[in-house]
């Protein structure tokens, strides 16, 4: 069974996000006074073959811990959906 996992990686709160800061300033200069905060992260899409959604999530979590995420500064969340053939 194939699953599509979307992993969103962001900097932990408290870690200096200089890209977010720069984007924040630029958006403010463009006149978006309503803006309160910007955090910049990244998205990783995985296409997985696993018997169950639980197994797929476990695999994705393992990949995050092994390589995709640096636990010192980053956190992540996984969303999963069944992938059509």
């Amino acid at each position: 069974m194939r699953h599509r996992a979307e992993i969103v990686v962001t900097l932990k709160s408290g870690v200096l996000d200089i890209q977010g800061k720069a984007v924040f300033q630029s958006l403010q200069q463009l006149g978006y006074g309503e803006l309160e905060d910007v955090r910049v992260g990244k998205v990783v899409h995985l296409l997985l073959d696993a018997p169950t959604p639980e197994k797929a999530r476990e695999l994705a979590r393992g990949m995050c811990e092994d390589l995709l995420v640096n636990g010192l500064i980053e956190e992540y969340r996984i969303s999963l959906e069944a992938a059509e053939r």
Partner: peptide, 10 residues
């Protein structure tokens, strides 16, 4: 220990 983040100049 630690990590290296992008320069403050970006």
């Amino acid at each position: 220990p630690g990590t290296l983040l992008p320069n403050k100049t970006l």
